[in-house]
């Protein structure tokens, strides 16, 4: 295969898998009004990533999953505990926890810069280089590592969402009902948070810590403007995510922007949102403004 074509397909496939995996869990974040928890998690798992690297003697990329996922869940738990202590608002709890953990992460990375962990890469991602880091198992080159990681993450998220569809749905729209039905909404909540953390780590290598939130939130929010049905919203979110990856790739292939694929994809997601926001038939800007002009007389 033509190496350029190979590289392109690896980048696009990795990007699409990232977008699909994040959109699956991101849809529930948006519906639960927890978009910023996604943002907080993606920042706050940084120390977990570093810790994972330090703990594993072989510096294996899979080693950072347990610590980072634990940090992600810890973040959510810390925010909720602070909020529940009634000493800080939810807004302030979030705004105090994730910068603290992120600062800790940056400090740790700076101290151990000699290891194979580049701050810029962790924070901004290098999706255009994914084909250069292969997964080597038992001496065999199995192809790009990120592809494997995000592929498995996508499958895991898909299993979670399909397997716990009913629980997630009821837990999202009516946690009290879920509780009374014995569906354990608190467990579902932390399971979802674990999934978000794991997905964020898997996406780290491709798109970086800060831009993960673009993939988590923006396609799902775009889809939410178009439909009231949950399954359609999740499907559309995946679709918008993948579309953003392709549009972003085309944007980034302009020579002057050639080194920031992930950022271009995030911008593309924002642009798609902007277009849908303008023209969405019921919940869009134009439709809302037009509707405001005429009042429906009550019966």
């Amino acid at each position: 295969m033509d190496p350029e074509l190979y590289r392109m397909s690896v980048v696009l496939l990795t990007g699409s898998l990232t977008a699909a995996a994040t959109a699956l869990v991101g849809s529930f974040l948006v519906l639960r009004r927890m978009s910023l928890i996604g943002d907080a998690i993606s920042h706050a798992i940084l120390p977990g990533v570093v810790l994972g690297f330090l703990l594993s003697t072989e510096r294996h990329p899979l080693a950072l999953f347990p610590t980072a996922a634990a940090t992600g869940v810890l973040t959510v738990w810390l925010i909720e505990t602070l909020f529940r202590s009634r000493r800080l608002s939810e807004d302030a709890s979030t705004a105090v926890v994730f910068p603290a953990l992120f600062a800790l992460g940056v400090l740790l990375i700076s101290r151990i810069r000699y290891v194979d962990l580049d701050l810029d890469c962790v924070i901004f991602g290098r999706i255009e280089d994914v084909d250069r880091r292969p997964l080597i198992l038992l001496g065999t080159d199995l192809g790009p590592r990120a592809l494997w990681m995000l592929g498995s993450m996508f499958v895991l998220d898909l299993l979670l969402v399909v397997g716990l569809w009913k629980e997630l749905k009821i837990g999202t729209f009516d946690p009290a009902l879920a509780e009374s039905l014995g569906l354990r909404p608190a467990w579902i909540h932390y399971l979802l948070m674990t999934a978000v953390s794991l997905t964020a780590i898997a996406a780290f290598e491709a798109v970086g810590a800060i831009l993960v939130v673009a993939f988590l939130v923006v396609p799902a929010a775009t889809a939410y403007l178009l439909t009231d049905r949950l399954w359609l919203m999740v499907a559309l979110a995946v679709g918008f995510g993948i579309a953003s990856v392709f549009v972003g790739y085309i944007l980034a292939s302009e020579p002057i922007l050639n080194s920031q694929g992930a950022a271009a994809m995030a911008v593309a997601a924002g642009m798609l949102f902007g277009v849908v926001w303008l023209v969405a038939p019921r919940h869009g800007l134009v439709a809302t403004l037009l509707r405001r002009r005429r009042l429906v007389k009550p019966e």
């Binding site: 800060i210 831009l211 995030a266």
Partner: peptide, 10 residues
């Protein structure tokens, strides 16, 4: 979330 990520990416 939308404004934060899109503007920052830009």
């Amino acid at each position: 979330g939308i404004v934060l990520s899109t503007f920052f990416a830009l």
